[in-house]
Design a protein around this nucleic acid. Structure first.
Length: 499
DNA sequence: AAAAAAT
């Protein structure tokens, strides 16, 4: 079997590799490194977790170790789709280039230009960047790409998803025709194929088997439940999530909780914290410094629950996550594979729990088609709903609220799915309550001012007024006409046609 | 129904 020492790498690189504890290259490393060292273009079809990063950093350091950088003219360039990924590549360089004198700069958005400018001015051997910030520097005239000898594109298919391909093409055109190109993508979409045909010269094509999508080390579960009411789905899912985390007990050492929307990431993280869980959010709208800090805390173990958007689904190197929770079913089936792939790594056992509502059926079908198996259905935990501090600025649901609901929905207790249906209110409340004393109309009940009007779910669920279906009581707002003020209706015909 | 990345 090949060892790193057989690969013709610079002795100083080999030393650092050995110190990092590696002896045997992964398949992509064993195949890509010799070609890269020969100066050939490489087209690597491989996913995260295959050792892709080292397959280009090690030969790059070796090739660059001779020669020195000139001011504003980096000798090599690595492009990554997200800031975290770029930062990760930079860390990799630090690890493996530590015995060399190579310099590097990390050019990503969300941080000040000043330090980056300073480094570029001094001259760097390796420039690691996200496309937007790189072009920004270029346009400000601070950067010349005509000295680039080696260019790496990492996670090209993700760049495509994110609309970066035009930027990538432009950057390619700013670098010399004679450069060496190392290009990595998990898939070969037609657009990716076109780019590689245009910008790579006779590349060595290396394909590494995709990680088993449903690796045996990941135990997948599906928690399928129907929210008691559409507008309660969000709150009930939060309660469900808490119950699921709690049920895992100590076995859940750390977990990533994925939501589909950034806003939900924030609310879920806040809600978990309010319930005493050690949780923090990460998504693209947060400060870069905060994103980094949160990731560091999570890696170090001081943070147990990372609530994330799909920014964290791919690429990020987060070792040893015991659990992944999908608070939302991802709407791209590929993302499901990426998300659950954050657990069960390196032979360790992992658990991936997905919360699904009937609205997710379509996406669930696509996911199960992709992974070619059904996700085993797990029992739905019972949830109680009236202990939410994130709604704690309102009086706890009073007995009359529950009683009213019981009265309004006499069929509830008879539902056949009662055992598995989530409880949305404590059913042990005295059902045989005394005859309703005349209650003040909800509108007259003095209520403390609500601070959470911004909250997405408060809009629907504003008070304890019972919902009476559409039977004998119709909420006033529904009786209002849908007609808009005449002034707005300049073209009434096109308006209806558009709907 | 979305997320990511330049300000």
């Amino acid at each position: 079997m090949t060892k790193f020492s057989d690969l013709n790498l610079d002795p100083l690189v080999l030393k650092a590799v050995a110190e990092a504890g590696y002896e045997t290259p992964t398949p992509i490393q064993a195949q890509a490194i010799p070609h890269a060292l020969e100066g050939r273009d490489v087209l690597g079809i491989a996913q995260t977790g295959t050792g892709k990063t080292a397959s280009f950093t090690l030969p790059m350091i070796t090739l660059l170790s001779k020669g020195r950088a000139r001011a504003r003219m980096p000798r090599s360039l690595v492009l990554a789709p997200t800031r975290e990924l770029a930062a990760q590549v930079a860390e990799n360089f630090d690890t493996y280039a530590k015995h060399t004198k190579l310099t590097k700069a990390l050019l990503i958005g969300g941080v000040s230009f000043k330090e980056q400018d300073l480094l570029i001015d001094r001259g760097v051997d390796v420039l690691i960047a996200t496309p937007g910030r790189l072009l920004d520097h270029f346009e400000r005239g601070k950067l010349l790409l005509t000295g680039v000898q080696i260019m790496v594109v990492d996670e090209a298919d993700r760049m495509l998803d994110m609309g970066f391909i035009p930027d990538i093409e432009r950057i390619f055109q700013l670098t010399p025709f004679t450069r060496q190109t190392l290009f990595f993508s998990a898939t070969m979409a037609p657009e990716i194929e076109r780019i590689t045909n245009t910008f790579l010269t006779n590349p060595a094509k290396i394909e590494v088997a995709r990680q088993a999508t449903t690796s045996e080390t990941i135990e997948q579960r599906l928690v399928a439940f129907a929210p008691s009411r559409r507008d309660r789905a969000f709150g009930e899912k939060r309660a469900m999530l808490r119950a699921l985390i709690t049920a895992e007990g100590e076995g859940c050492t750390n977990a990533i909780i994925f939501c589909n929307r950034k806003m939900d990431v924030d609310v879920v993280a806040k809600s978990l914290k309010a319930h005493g869980f050690n949780a923090a959010p990460i998504h693209g709208d947060l400060d870069q410094s905060q994103r980094m800090r949160t990731l560091d805390d999570f890696r170090e173990g001081t943070l147990r629950l990372l609530v994330a958007s799909d920014v964290a689904a791919r690429g990020l190197d987060i070792p040893a996550v015991s659990h992944v929770f999908n608070f939302d079913v991802p709407s791209h089936s590929e993302d499901y594979v990426h998300r659950i792939g954050r657990t069960g790594r390196a032979g360790r056992k992992g658990v991936a729990v997905t919360i699904a509502t009937p609205a997710d059926d379509k996406y669930l079908g696509q996911i199960e088609a992709l992974i070619k198996r059904e996700i085993p259905r797990a029992p739905v935990p019972e949830i109680t709903f009236d202990d939410r501090p994130d709604r704690g600025d309102r009086p706890a649901r009073g007995r009359h609220g529950d009683r009213d609901r019981d009265r309004d929905r006499p069929a509830r207790g008879e539902r056949s799915d009662r055992r598995t249906a989530p409880r949305t209110e404590p059913q042990q409340q005295p059902v045989a309550a005394p005859a309703p004393a005349p209650q003040p109309a909800a509108e007259d009940t003095p209520r403390p001012p609500r601070r959470d009007d911004r909250r997405r779910d408060s809009r629907h669920d504003r008070d304890d007024t019972p919902v009476v279906g559409m039977g004998d009581h119709m909420p006033e707002f529904l009786t209002r006409s849908f007609a808009r003020p005449a002034a707005v209706n300049a073209e009434p015909d096109t308006e209806t046609a558009a709907g």
